[in-house]
């Protein structure tokens, strides 16, 4: 899923404090699971904004709404659409995709982002998420037996570890980040496939990553 975290409160408040009628719009999918922009977080932020406005005697109406997915037009029903149009501004607690999708659907309303979108990640334990995919456009997980050097190696090394691997940890963050190549070698050893690493991997085709410009995917059988 897409993992995000909330922007600092002061940054959010500065961007919305001039609006008298603010709608905070949460998203019920990825950012609900990573506890950054779901119904509960919308409630917390709405209460914080109400308190901050009260502290400076500012009149401000804060409405709360959360939809299933901000990145899908079908979830913008008539209720939420009219709430968006009636608001002075919308503070979106969706990821960067959600924010831009609202802008595309409602081009007359100012939209402010409330989150910093971070990465595609997995839930490692309650309250902790880690990056697992970089969306490079050409998956190499088969070559490395299910551990991605693009996303999990700090330097995206494709042909073995660098010199910064120490006690199985990465030099960039030795406390928290395991060396991806240590993980790959351990897994290959376990599966008795270590000889697979003798094969030299040619340079990766990065044109399918962001380097080839904005991407789009089409299923011709599904388009109307």
């Amino acid at each position: 899923m897409i993992v995000a975290e909330q922007k600092p409160f002061q940054e959010i408040y500065e961007s919305v404090r001039e609006h008298q009628n603010l709608l905070i719009l949460g998203c019920g999918t990825c950012v609900t699971v990573c506890m950054a922009g779901g119904e509960r977080e919308v409630g917390i932020l709405a209460n914080q904004i109400r308190l901050a406005a009260k502290e400076e005697n500012r009149k401000m109406e804060v409405l709360e709404h959360t939809i299933t997915r901000q990145c899908d037009e079908e979830f913008f029903d008539s209720t939420v659409s009219s709430s968006i149009r009636e608001a002075d501004a919308v503070l979106s607690l969706g990821c960067g995709v959600g924010v831009q999708h609202i802008v595309e659907l409602f081009d007359e309303v100012p939209i402010h982002p409330g989150l910093n979108t971070q990465f595609f990640g997995a839930n490692l334990q309650q309250g902790l998420w880690g990056e697992r995919c970089a969306g490079c456009g050409e998956c190499v997980l088969d070559t490395y037996e299910g551990i991605c050097p693009v996303a999990r190696c700090s330097k995206s090394m494709m042909n073995g570890p660098c010199g910064g691997s120490s006690n199985g940890m990465c030099e960039v963050d030795p406390e928290n980040t395991p060396c991806a190549w240590q993980l790959i070698i351990d897994r290959m050893t376990k599966l008795n496939k270590l000889d697979k690493l003798m094969e030299n991997q040619p340079p990766k085709n990065w044109s399918r990553d962001r380097h080839g410009g904005p991407r789009r995917t089409q299923r011709e059988d599904m388009t109307l």
């Binding site: 509960r40 409630g43 917390i44 209460n47 914080q48 109400r50 308190l51 009260k54």
Partner: peptide, 11 residues
């Protein structure tokens, strides 16, 4: 106890 409960009390 939920954080919203506590903040709502102050609101």
């Amino acid at each position: 106890v939920d954080i919203n409960m506590l903040l709502r009390a102050f609101v």
